[in-house]
Simulated scan of single mutants.
Amino acid sequence: MDKEYDLNYIIEMKKEHPCHLSKQWKIIRMGADIRIKCLGCGASVLMPRVKFEKKLKKVISKGEE
């Protein structure tokens, strides 16, 4: 299953963030590593692209350009 995502996209991860407010994240940096920001509490997480793709559930919406 090929999931298309890019900078500023809103995505949903398989597991909920420990803040228990949201499974939704915004992609704020892309490269070999991807940084995502929790839309519930504002915390950001940096992870390798391979790990990110395993944890990604679905793309919710495209972000603003």
Rank of each mutant, 00 (worst) to 15 (best):
C38V: 00
L46C: 09
S22E: 04
M30N: 03
M1R: 14
F52V: 07
I10L: 09
P48T: 13
K62E: 10
D6E: 13
H20D: 13
I36D: 04
F52C: 03
V45F: 11
Q24D: 08
K37A: 03
A43S: 12
K62N: 06
L56K: 06
K37T: 04
K14W: 10
I27A: 00
M1Q: 13
K54A: 11
V50Y: 11
A32N: 13
R35N: 13
L56Q: 02
P18T: 12
L7Y: 06
L56C: 05
D2W: 07
M1K: 14
H17C: 13
G40E: 04
I34W: 04
G42R: 07
H17A: 10
K55S: 14
K58C: 10
M1Y: 12
P18R: 13
M13H: 10
L39M: 12
V59W: 09
F52R: 07
K58R: 15
G31I: 11
L7C: 01
N8V: 03
L39W: 08
R35H: 09
S22F: 05
P18S: 13
M30I: 15
K37I: 01
K37L: 08
I60R: 04
K58Y: 10
G31A: 11
A43F: 03
N8I: 03
L7T: 03
D6M: 08
D6A: 12
K37Q: 09
E16N: 15
E53G: 11
K51F: 05
Y9E: 00
I27R: 00
K14Y: 09
K51L: 06
K3I: 15
L7F: 07
I27S: 02
I60E: 06
C41H: 01
G31V: 09
V45C: 10
Y5G: 05
V45L: 15
F52H: 05
H17G: 00
K62W: 04
Q24L: 12
A32M: 08
V45K: 06
A32L: 05
E53W: 05
E4I: 15
G40H: 01
L21Q: 06
I60W: 05
D2E: 15
R35Q: 15
F52L: 05
K62T: 09
I34L: 07
R29E: 12
D2Y: 05
I27C: 00
P48M: 14
K37Y: 01
I36Q: 04
Y9S: 03
K37R: 10
S44F: 06
M1I: 14
K54R: 15
D33Y: 12
K54N: 11
G31Q: 12
V45E: 12
F52P: 06
Q24G: 05
M13G: 07
H17L: 08
V50S: 10
I60Y: 04
A32C: 09
S61D: 06
V45N: 12
K15D: 15
Y5V: 09
C41T: 00
R35P: 01
M13E: 08
N8M: 02
Y5R: 02
E16W: 13
K51M: 02
I11P: 01
K3T: 15
A32Q: 09
K54P: 02
G42D: 01
I27T: 00
K23I: 06
C41S: 02
H20N: 12
V59F: 14
G31F: 14
A43P: 00
R49W: 01
K3F: 10
P48Q: 15
K37P: 01
Y9T: 00
I60Q: 03
S22T: 12
K14P: 04
N8P: 00
E53M: 11
M1A: 14
M13C: 07
R49C: 07
